[in-house]
Design a protein around this nucleic acid. Structure first.
Lengths: 343, 343
DNA sequence: AGTGGAAATGATAACGATAACTTTTTACGG
DNA sequence: CCGTAAAAAGTTATCGTTATCATTTCCACT
């Protein structure tokens, strides 16, 4: 195939200067309708496609907003990307996505790569970064938004919530329902910082209620899938330890745990309560439905977009928007009325 | 914040020419170690980040591969993107993603936008496009890969499979298991072309077996979620029509249908068989596990990457790789041994 | 008709990087 | 020490677009 035609060739075909062609493609410019139509025809004829790269270089506006997420396969993050993407599209901007695989070193590499595309802003997931990554973000000269977390030392704006606090609310709910022997089922280590925060919130809340947080089940390396949730639940049950309720790092893990109970003939919530995190559609459809926390994943993205549009188009300085307040959704899997057992 | 520093400033700081700085950042160039280190220091000092945009303009290699998918929230497509992304990363290329929302007009807009970023290749989902979109792709001068489908008139390469044929295999399985009154549960209309193909394959297969394909349940506009699957199943059951088995457009819809049966006290597969499509993790974990077809979503992406790397780096012309052959995974939800009923 | 001024169009240089070429420096055998 | 080839560094022009300024065209109104 021949290489893509440029404005120069369109200009020649239309019998005008390159500058006039350039103007024909912008809304504001002063150009006669006749000329614009003539140029449009020539462009269509040649199959001309505007080069956003060259334009971006000249006007120093790439039209990109970069975003890093741990994994594309997690529908929570996919929702955030969706919210961001949809709302930015209205202002003609495009999201440039990168995946960290829950690894902050990988995140650093990724941030460097993304900044090389000269995005107009960057949205990252989480508030924990390598020292070099922080420096890159701070020195980038563009708005930075950290999401899905509440960093103690934010780089720019924040649109997130405390995963620990959210989990504390969940423990409160379980305790209110009469549970005492509560397990936490989540990933190993601290690679998934949101997971680690939730575990910490769990432990703190248990301590606060004077309960032992000795049932911390490691389900493997993040992200924890349904299968790993099922395995970990199996291991917990095999251990023979007494358990009232299981707090899972996500609805996916919770669903895995739930199915393991079903396979073993345990009734949820009659024999044991199971709760998740993330408000995945799954948890609202399965039988029984799973109590969870809705972090407003899509809204996080939408809010980030709104904030950025304010910064970029209206020249406002970065302001932290109203905080995200996750909502506890009490459903069948922990419904006390159905018989949460006391120990 | 100050604007990002350029090579010029790094050059001044290091006391060399811009060209030398440029060379310092490329592996091949002839440059002394001392100079390279000096430049590296200066660059770190200033927080210099390489501008891939400007470089791309000059060398005519953007480092982008564009891809369009119907929705980011569908884990099948997310897997394909993951496979593509991971394998392209090794060759230093980045995936630029766009979402069509199952709308070919939106796809056309998107393709135009993506081509404006001067990607080195473009991967699209499906084989149905607007006339203008076809022209854009054909005239783009870059390798084009159509995936997840087997277009009759391909634009470039194809890495896909026949959704109709795959569904025929599924019907064969159900018929073998003794089912006669088989329903199809999927989306309205033809917006989701893969869904429409599956429905067509279903109808053809039913006709081939001399069975009536009169149970075509419309579950709403694509994409069909779990909830819509559940609703549609409810409507089917409420209609009082006799049904042996239900063929769903995806595992998500199938799971929704399955839960609806559970809520109504119907046993799967004893009272009714349910099968899905897509080999989502969900279907392998839920109780009972769901019979499905594995389209090798991740492999589609990986194969596309391999093909493109051959085209771009080794100058080979576009060759269609070995075809994708979806695998029927027979699981509990249609297990004849457990008692698929004959009518 | 002639004139003033706005609208339309054109010419030039620049955005940040690099290919291609030229010049300077280094290294080494004789 | 010199000559020479190779390595290292510098110069210039360019990728496709647009800001800026200069020029031409057009029209309304005296």
């Amino acid at each position: 195939m021949a290489k893509a035609p440029t404005m120069k060739e369109v200009a020649k075909a239309a019998g005008v200067s390159v500058m006039t062609v350039s103007r024909a493609f912008r809304a504001d410019a002063s150009i006669s309708t006749a000329t614009r139509e003539k140029i449009q025809r020539a462009a269509d004829e040649l199959g001309y496609v505007f080069d956003a790269t060259a334009s971006g270089l000249r006007v120093k506006k790439s039209g990109f907003v970069a975003m890093t997420i741990p994994s594309i396969s997690n529908s929570n993050f996919a929702d955030t990307v969706g919210g961001l993407s949809e709302r930015l599209a209205a202002s003609g901007r495009q999201v440039l996505l990168g995946y960290t695989n829950y690894d902050i070193d990988e995140e650093e590499r990724l941030i460097r790569q993304l900044l090389g595309r000269r995005p107009e802003a960057i949205v990252v997931t989480g508030g924990q970064h390598t020292e070099a990554a922080r420096k890159l973000l701070q020195g980038s000269g563009i708005p930075v938004v950290e999401t899905w977390d509440l960093p103690t030392d934010p780089i720019g704006s924040v649109i997130g919530f405390s995963n620990a606090k959210a989990m504390e609310a969940m423990v409160q709910h379980l305790v209110d329902a009469g549970h005492r022997r509560i397990a936490y089922l989540g990933g190993d280590g601290n690679a998934d910082t949101r997971g680690a925060d939730r575990r910490r919130g769990f432990a703190d809340a248990m301590a606060h209620h004077g309960l032992a947080a000795d049932l911390l089940i490691d389900a493997g390396l993040p992200p924890i899938s349904m299968r790993e949730g099922a395995h970990a639940m199996g291991a917990l049950l095999d251990s023979g330890r007494t358990v009232d309720a299981v707090c899972c790092v996500s609805d996916l893990a919770a669903f895995g745990a739930l199915t393991e109970c079903q396979r073993r003939g345990l009734k949820v919530p009659d024999d044991i309560s199971i709760v998740g995190f993330g408000a995945y559609e799954l948890g609202d459809i399965c039988v029984p439905t799973i109590t969870t926390i809705d972090p407003a994943a899509r809204e996080i993205g939408a809010r980030a977009a709104d904030l950025l549009i304010k910064c970029l188009d209206e020249g406002q300085s970065e302001t932290s928007a109203a905080p995200i307040t996750p909502k506890l959704l009490i459903r069948q899997s922990s419904d006390a009325a159905k018989g949460g057992q006391k120990k």
